[in-house]
Design a binder for these strands. Structure first.
Lengths: 136, 136
DNA sequence: ATTAATGCAAACACTTTGCAATGGA
DNA sequence: TCCATTGCAAAGTGTTTGCATTAAT
């Protein structure tokens, strides 16, 4: 994911653990999930540290903050532009690898400078689909 | 936006005011903005009522809840599928009228049932652009 | 030695909920 | 009249911040 040396911030064990946890992680975890996962090895680590580290990483462009989940921020170590598909039942988010080259016409642009875009697909994952069928 | 009669829920003055405020509104207001806007005419109206009404309307499919703003839910009376462009500085959200017909290949679908999608463009609005230039 | 990061707790922002009182149907 | 809705307050989440202590550089 990144060369730790070049990051330019203090490499604490906590940060290292967060970076390691995030490396290659495609689960789009929330801050609390990261905290929970690491609390076994770092029982004293504070959730505030997780938030602070994530914010620092975001500022340095090393993680992406996703707003696809209306209830909490989700974090993605994959900073390349890509899209997501979320299950509306269990809120699982998976990556969409297809690239969509979308651009706005002048009317839609409304004199904004357009910096990027993100496509959010939503649907129902196989597990939740089965569960829904069971209920029906 | 809707025929009040057919809604099938009690038409209180508060709900009527919220419906009126939302009708044709393209500002994508948050619950608090709606509350603030209506508090002049309904000084006693509770923010909880706004939230409750919005949730009821959402369940009935009369408003859309947007998650594009990571800090708060934004509401859109336009329930037709459409896309949005948000200013990353002032969080203004405007509608994008262009339709993008996007579909996922089987690999990306990962056995999900895909129900829809939403494209979020982000950029800088003319006002914030000027402000940013002033600072530079 | 310096200075930034940590952990804790408190504060904050947004949203939901319990409940008695109210008022549409 | 009846039952859903209101207003208020309290509680519930998710997130940020102040500050003394700790530890990376």
């Amino acid at each position: 994911m990144m060369k730790y040396k070049e990051i330019g911030f203090k490499l604490t064990p906590q940060r290292l653990a967060i970076l390691d946890y995030l490396e290659g992680n495609t689960a789009h975890p929330s801050a609390e999930e990261i905290d929970r996962a690491l609390s076994e090895k770092f029982p004293t680590m504070s959730l505030a540290t997780v938030y602070n580290t994530l914010e620092t990483l975001r500022q340095k462009g090393l993680v992406q903050e996703l707003s696809i989940d209306p209830d909490k921020k989700r974090f993605d170590p994959n900073i390349r532009p890509h899209n997501h598909l979320m299950c509306i039942d269990c809120r699982r988010i998976i990556d969409v690898h297809t690239n969509f080259d979308l651009s706005l016409n002048d009317r839609d642009k409304a004199n904004f400078i357009v910096l990027g875009h993100h496509v959010e697909f939503y649907g129902r994952c196989p597990e939740c689909r089965k569960a829904a069928e069971g209920r029906a």
